[in-house]
Design a protein around this nucleic acid. Structure first.
Lengths: 347, 347
DNA sequence: GACCGTATTGACAGCGCTATCATAAGCTGT
DNA sequence: ACAGCTTATGATAGCGCTGTCAATACGGTC
């Protein structure tokens, strides 16, 4: 970096570099610190002085350098966000809720996608920490000790999102996936179904889906029913995977199920398409249930029986609690966002 | 911020603050600058010295402060990303491609969502610039003069993504939406259809959809056909909107269309659901065509006729060209990513 | 042995900003 | 008139790091 050492530092600055606070201050005829206070509206500054500074800033097209500001002691207004995926609309919704709330307070997310890879998650965590964010929002890929340790050592506000079943290092905002699975088991059993199957996607990567399956099993056993066939196909959940998966599940099932619980709506919509193509009457021949409450499921000729997971709301609440904490407040450590069972017409 | 002024600065640091490079250097018995070089693998450092520094860094759990590093002259490794929406899977896909490529080179996106609001876009642009990013990737909400001016004045690499029809300030990566509309017109006309309608969503916000419509019109007129009814419903595109919209379009149409071109696949899938529920045979009674090539459309009992838009690839290429430029390369100013017409079974 | 090139290390200054403390000016009450 | 306040402004000293230039040590050459 060129240093213009010794000479008048601002001689060429107007041409070469971005305008600095010092130039704004000089243009307004005040000291640097007064200009700083005026632009931040912090501390006592006479109103005509502030106006003069603001005019100078606009005239010079001044954009503050928050790297310098944060280094000098101002609170950072960046928030590290780590999500396991963006292929699934679920996390895009969460991110939308997050960004929306953060932006309202002048904060910005720095994003990292872990692809459900704990090693990548760990690297992301370190990388994002190097930007000294004000806080962290993370949807953990898995609960590993390393991640746990890093989060605890991070020494800044952390919100773990999506589920509230596991222990969290600091704050948590999400739903109980176990509870959601259980609720669906009770609902379906209450509708009279007794022979159940489960169709899921890459279980090794999505532990929240596993929790729903566990909860589903528990819920069934509470009413004296045992879960039948469980088929988990590798890879992320997609509509085509659900479609092919159901075909395979029905072909391989030892006892034909009356109802299938899918790992989520993408899979379930695929299942609905298979039934339609194969002439299987839903829900008379086979009942279908999903999870998430995606609009696509509700727009099907027969709206899907599912559970709405309030994803955007989870992001919004996570950001709200983080900002609250940063403002010195004391938000709840665990926020159990309600899920809502949507009866639909497929079960 | 407490300054420990006068006294030994590191006296309590191990307890209070994060470890700094200076502490790592002392622990390794070298100067600060040597530690810096060792950790960055920059400049000549003896291999045993480097190992000593690395061990010290690990022992202290050192995380570099990139705010300080960037301020001191190192190139920033943050990239500002501004997208108009995340409700639509399209932009989530783009973001995924971007993040994936950037992360590979140790860069991270700072995200802003404009909600198709030029004022918010402008504010985001200023806010993100204040973090002194290495570059910018933006899917402009609209092409306003203010945004144009800011981008030109930004004086850093900028990639405008999604479409290549309009002029760009620096680099552009995307597809020709006009061309895509035209291609669909020619394809449908080639299949023998002659009476066309268009069903779109909030046209005031999504100018790329408008460009597809324009191209569609042009393409039809090139084969001597005039586009019939055009219905644009307010709000973002969703499956339910497409379903309701098609019902309304057919009810209100002056002359019943043979084929409907939808603003995108979300809308078209909704249209397919309406046909199914209303007993309209597709494509015999009515042909349907969408845009984007979403997996949901391809999983329908009858795969949707549509155009694949390679969204993730656009993000990936945009990031690649940005990184190339940052590395001193000279990537193409305009990259026209191919789209691909998927024949499907609905038209 | 003086000389040179290379490898390795360090001293120093400064990036652009804000926290802290000090100062000056204006006002009140007695 | 002077203490005792509040309001407005500034001088100073860093934040933690990296670019620049200088210094040292080592091996070999003539």
């Amino acid at each position: 970096m060129p240093h213009f050492s010794g000479m008048d530092d601002d001689r060429q600055d107007t041409q070469t570099r971005r305008p600095t606070l010092s130039q704004v201050a000089r243009a307004a005829g005040v000291s640097e610190i007064t200009a700083s206070r005026a632009l931040r509206r912090d501390g006592p500054v006479a109103s005509d002085t502030r106006e003069r500074v603001e005019r100078a800033a606009i005239a010079l097209n001044y954009v503050p350098n928050r790297l310098a500001g944060t280094l000098a002691g101002a609170a950072s207004r960046q928030v590290g966000v780590i999500l396991p995926s963006l292929s699934n609309i679920v996390f895009a919704d969460v991110l939308k809720g997050l960004e929306d709330r953060l932006e309202g307070d002048g904060y910005h997310p720095i994003l990292g996608i872990s692809n459900y890879d704990p090693l990548r998650e760990e690297r992301l965590l370190r990388d994002l920490m190097s930007w000294r964010p004000a806080g962290l929002v993370i949807a953990p890929a898995r609960k590993t000790d390393v991640t746990r340790g890093l989060l605890t050592a991070a020494d800044l506000p952390v919100v773990e999102i999506m589920d509230v079943d596991a222990e969290s290092a600091d704050m948590a905002v999400g739903i109980s996936h176990r509870g959601a699975g259980r609720a669906m088991a009770h609902y379906l059993a209450g509708r009279g179904y007794r022979r159940f199957a489960y169709l899921g996607h890459g279980i090794e990567t999505d532990f929240r889906a596993t929790q729903r399956l566990d909860g589903f099993r528990d819920g069934l056993s509470e009413v004296g029913v045992t879960l039948g066939d469980v088929l988990c196909l590798p890879g992320p959940s997609t509509v085509p995977l659900g479609r092919e998966g159901l075909a395979r599940l029905l072909a391989e099932a030892k006892t034909p199920p009356e109802a299938v619980f899918f790992s989520n709506d993408d899979m379930a919509v695929g299942g609905a398409f298979h039934c339609q193509a194969a002439g299987i009457a839903v829900p008379e021949d086979l009942a279908l249930a999903g999870f998430n409450g995606l609009s696509i499921g509700q727009a099907l000729p027969k709206p899907l029986t599912t559970i709405a997971s309030q994803r955007e709301h989870i992001g919004f609440v996570a950001a709200t609690h983080l900002l609250d904490r940063l403002a010195g407040g004391n938000p709840p450590r665990v926020t159990n966002v309600d899920f809502r069972l949507i009866p639909g017409a497929t079960a």
